[in-house]
């Protein structure tokens, strides 16, 4: 009851923090898409490159987020962004690489070789093949990677509150330091709801941008 009352009393702050939170995650994931999708496509050309890149991205994701934030303080301090929004975004960009690269790579590698052969045999260039056939067919799996990245990073961004990046994590960190369960629970619930809502929204986007010709198979 107390928690509910706290939520109602602090609606505006919660909204503000949620927006901060989303801005970290969405800006970062947008950057990550811009880097990871091309990387995922590029490494389909070489088995060795794929192994190296996927291994590196896997190592990256095993670094605990709190340690990554700590590492970035000395690295980014010279440009005046040791703490706050910028390191939070960078961390999320890095964590998003693995799910997006891996899904993009896997999805494109898994495109039916017969389709690839048909496309080449009909005279498509590599870029046309990617644009017309391989990326559209890989899209549902790439989107799944993006959704994984978003949901995972909504959780990680909560920790960014410790480096002053704001967001819903602020409620959690204050709840812990002030031994205030109301703030703690509010933060936790809000983060969860945000993750669920973002996932559903992206599922809708995925449906809209997937060709009707492959839609049913993917959802089945």
């Amino acid at each position: 009851m107390e928690v509910l009352q706290f939520m109602i009393d602090n609606q505006e702050v919660i909204g503000e923090r949620a927006l901060e939170h989303l801005s970290i995650v969405f800006v970062a994931v947008a950057i990550a898409i811009a880097t990871a999708v091309p990387i995922g496509v590029a490494i389909t050309q070489s088995r060795l490159a794929a192994d190296v890149v996927l291994y590196a991205a896997s190592m990256l994701i095993t670094v605990p987020s709190i340690a990554l934030f700590g590492l970035m303080i000395p690295l980014l301090s010279p440009i005046g962004h040791g703490i706050g929004y910028v390191p939070a975004v960078i961390a999320v960009v890095l964590y998003s690489q693995l799910p997006i690269i891996r899904n993009t790579y896997t999805a494109i590698i898994d495109v039916d070789p017969a389709l690839r052969e048909a496309a080449i045999g009909m005279g498509m260039s590599t870029l046309q093949r990617l644009r017309e056939i391989e990326i559209p067919l890989a899209l549902p799996v790439i989107m799944a990677g993006i959704r994984t990245a978003v949901v995972m990073n909504i959780g990680i961004a909560a920790i960014a509150a410790y480096i002053g990046a704001g967001g819903l994590g602020t409620f959690i960190s204050r709840g812990i330091s002030q031994s205030d369960p109301r703030q703690l629970i509010t933060g936790a619930i809000a983060v969860s709801l945000l993750a669920i809502a973002a996932d559903l929204l992206l599922a809708l986007v995925q449906r809209l941008i997937t060709s009707a010709g492959i839609r049913r198979e993917v959802e089945a």
């Binding site: 017969a114 048909a118 005279g123 017309e132 067919l137 010709g213």
Partner: peptide, 22 residues
């Protein structure tokens, strides 16, 4: 080769219709 292939019809056993296209 790309121009050559566009001037030669190509049918494969697996048919290879693009599922994302009508």
């Amino acid at each position: 080769p790309i121009r050559l292939r566009r001037s030669i019809g190509y049918v494969i056993q697996q048919i290879g219709l693009f599922p994302n296209k009508t």
